[in-house]
Computed example of a mutant assay.
Amino acid sequence: MTHFAVTVCLPGTLTEDELDAGLGATLARYDIEREVEPYIEYTREELIALGRRSSAWGGPPERAIWTDEQVYDHWIKQYDTDEIGPGGEVYTTSNPEGQWDYWSIGGIFNPFWKVRGTPESGPLPTDTAQLRDIIRESLTSTYAVIDLDGEWHQRRGGQWNAVADPAEVEEWRQTYEHIIDMLPADSWLVQIDCHR
């Protein structure tokens, strides 16, 4: 289980009172718990290949000499009969776009961005603001961003906290900035903490 920061872009036509509903609607697509129409998770051949790779990583030595049928019979036991198709394929209703099991605005992360404050206060940290109000230099890229079309974009290289190739980090920073640069100035940016 892990936490990672995501920038969600919302239309500037939303009022502050509509942000929570807009955020919920945008994020619903990426809910791990959202069930979808059944689809093939693994073909029979893919399940056998998965079983062979798993056996190579460990397990009883005799598994290394199992026939394909033995590998399949072992791995198919973890599925209910209603999840198994006539050709031995395995069906699922798990959300293939699932990214989070819960989220909150800000969450465990301090606000990344700053907006202009008063002369006395100076810049103020925020996790929700319209793009035009955010001090550009404070726009730090998050692990992922959901654009105005509701599309999820994320840094390559696996988990949010994985050690990344500096070239990948730079590529992601440029991609993130490009997505932000394409937004109308009145777009809302919301920094959320996703948990997976």
Rank of each mutant, 00 (worst) to 15 (best):
S94M: 09
D127N: 15
E89F: 00
I48W: 09
R44I: 02
Y143F: 15
S54M: 12
I32V: 12
L14V: 13
I32F: 06
H178M: 10
W100K: 04
W103K: 00
R155G: 06
I134K: 06
E177V: 06
T142I: 01
P11L: 02
D73N: 14
L23S: 04
G51D: 08
P11R: 09
D181M: 06
P60Q: 14
S104Y: 06
D68M: 01
L23R: 11
E46T: 01
V115R: 06
L131Y: 13
L50K: 09
R44F: 05
G98P: 09
E97I: 03
G122K: 00
A21G: 08
G98R: 07
Y30N: 02
G106Y: 07
D31M: 01
E97S: 13
A56P: 00
P96D: 09
G88I: 05
T2S: 13
G122W: 14
E45T: 08
T175V: 10
R52H: 04
Q130Y: 01
L10N: 04
D82V: 03
V163E: 07
N95S: 09
L183C: 13
P96I: 11
E18Y: 00
I146T: 06
P11V: 10
A164S: 13
D193L: 01
S141P: 15
E168N: 07
H74T: 15
P119R: 05
R29S: 08
G12C: 13
W160H: 15
E97A: 15
D17F: 07
I146K: 01
V71T: 14
E37G: 05
H153L: 13
W100A: 08
T43L: 05
R116S: 07
T26L: 05
S141Y: 01
I134E: 03
E177T: 10
V6A: 03
P61F: 03
A162E: 11
A164C: 05
R155A: 15
K77N: 10
I108M: 06
L183I: 10
C194D: 04
V163W: 03
L23W: 12
Y39P: 00
R29H: 14
D73M: 05
E35D: 11
W160S: 15
L14A: 08
V36W: 11
V163P: 02
S121F: 04
D127M: 03
G87V: 01
E37D: 15
W113N: 08
D133F: 10
D181T: 14
W172T: 07
P111K: 01
Q70F: 00
G22P: 11
A56G: 09
D17S: 13
E41L: 14
P119S: 01
V36Q: 05
Y30V: 12
I105L: 01
I192F: 05
S187F: 10
G22V: 08
W160D: 02
A162S: 15
E137H: 04
P61I: 11
D73T: 12
